[in-house]
């Protein structure tokens, strides 16, 4: 869906971002089935691509949410899935710093100061340093990567991310051979993220982590955008991690710090409830969590009778990642 020739539509028909959002409710109203959802996604992407062809000056790097990004095709993209509509990806989020309800991030993430932005690299590296967001955006060509996204709450989406493999960034960090894990820290400022200041239960900032070989797997993405444009704040602007074979909370948002460490690092949900959320948190239909069975999932943005589907081991990415866990008991190391 991301590649191929753009649909033949006159430039006058191209939908602007604001108009696109405005039309969303109407679209949803008119749409009757998954085919409709696919058409919306395809039309949006087609429009983005066509706009780029017609007006290359518009495709500057950087900027705030909605700015178009120049992207290239990636063989690592997931095929054969209907994209979840942009509206749902941006109005149905878990981003606890901005509130616990699904529409809280959309409502409250506007104040996230995404510019200037930098990622501080520390720990077991040759030399600690800081990467500015513009430098990161230019590090490698940005790729279109469609991934399934499976939340531990048993819902899922199909998201066309924009970014490059995290391994490209890690190479620039020059970690020492003693670094066995990498830890990510999300932006935290309770003046901006009001709700987080009121919640005594979670130790902020949000922390996540991966084993080094997981982080170096080409599927693990450093994402800067979705649907061909800069990440909306509620989706983790301006830069986030995406690990498609793990539950969504492993894909930390709005990264400000990356630390290379020797021992398995502290991660927020594991810290909250170790019996429920393991460090690995691979999508695994045979390991249940307490509140939800993980056998099934509901695909977001489809009619109710089409939502339910069977959850796949490693979220369907077993071919690319199963080797990482060879010899491990994934029932114990969940």
């Amino acid at each position: 869906m991301l590649i191929g020739t753009p649909p033949e539509i006159p430039s006058s028909e191209i939908t602007s971002q604001s108009e696109y959002l405005k039309r969303q409710s109407r679209r949803r109203f008119l749409r009757h089935a998954a085919a409709g959802a696919a058409a919306v996604g395809a039309a949006a992407l087609g429009a983005e691509r066509l706009a780029r062809v017609l007006d290359p000056g518009q495709t500057v790097l950087a900027g705030t949410a909605g700015t178009k990004l120049q992207t290239v095709y990636s063989p690592l993209t997931t095929t054969g899935e209907t994209l979840t509509p942009f509206y749902d990806i941006t109005h149905y989020n878990n981003f606890y710093e901005f509130g616990v309800n699904k529409d809280d991030p959309y409502k409250h993430a506007g104040g996230l100061p995404t510019r200037p932005w930098s990622i501080q690299v520390e720990g077991l590296v040759k030399k600690p340093r800081t990467f500015g967001i513009d430098e990161l955006l230019k590090l490698r060509p940005l790729e279109d990567r469609v991934y399934r996204h499976r939340c531990v709450e048993a819902w899922s989406m199909v998201i066309p991310w924009v970014g490059y493999s995290l391994s490209e960034f890690i190479q620039q960090c020059e970690p020492l051979s003693t670094a066995k894990y990498v830890q990510f820290f999300s932006y935290y400022n309770w003046h901006v993220e009001k709700w987080s200041g009121e919640d005594p239960g979670i130790y902020w900032p949000y922390r996540e982590g991966l084993r080094m070989d997981e982080a170096m797997n080409p599927l693990t993405l450093l994402a800067f955008g979705l649907y061909g444009q800069v990440l909306p704040n509620q989706d983790g602007a301006p830069v986030r991690i995406v690990v498609p074979w793990k539950y969504g909370y492993k894909s930390a948002k709005s990264i400000v710090k990356v630390r290379f460490v020797k021992k398995q690092p502290d991660t927020t949900w594991n810290n909250q409830s170790p019996s429920e959320y393991g460090f690995y948190s691979n999508v695994n239909p045979s390991v249940d969590t307490v509140p939800w069975s993980q056998k099934n999932e509901r695909r977001i943005g489809l009619p109710f009778y089409e939502q339910l589907r069977t959850t796949l081991m490693f979220n369907g990415y077993g071919d690319q990642v199963a080797y990482l866990y060879k010899g491990m008991n994934l029932r114990r190391d969940y």
Partner: peptide, 10 residues
């Protein structure tokens, strides 16, 4: 009308 929000089942 398929107007039950992002997660109609919920």
């Amino acid at each position: 009308m398929n107007n039950l929000g992002p997660d109609p089942t919920a």
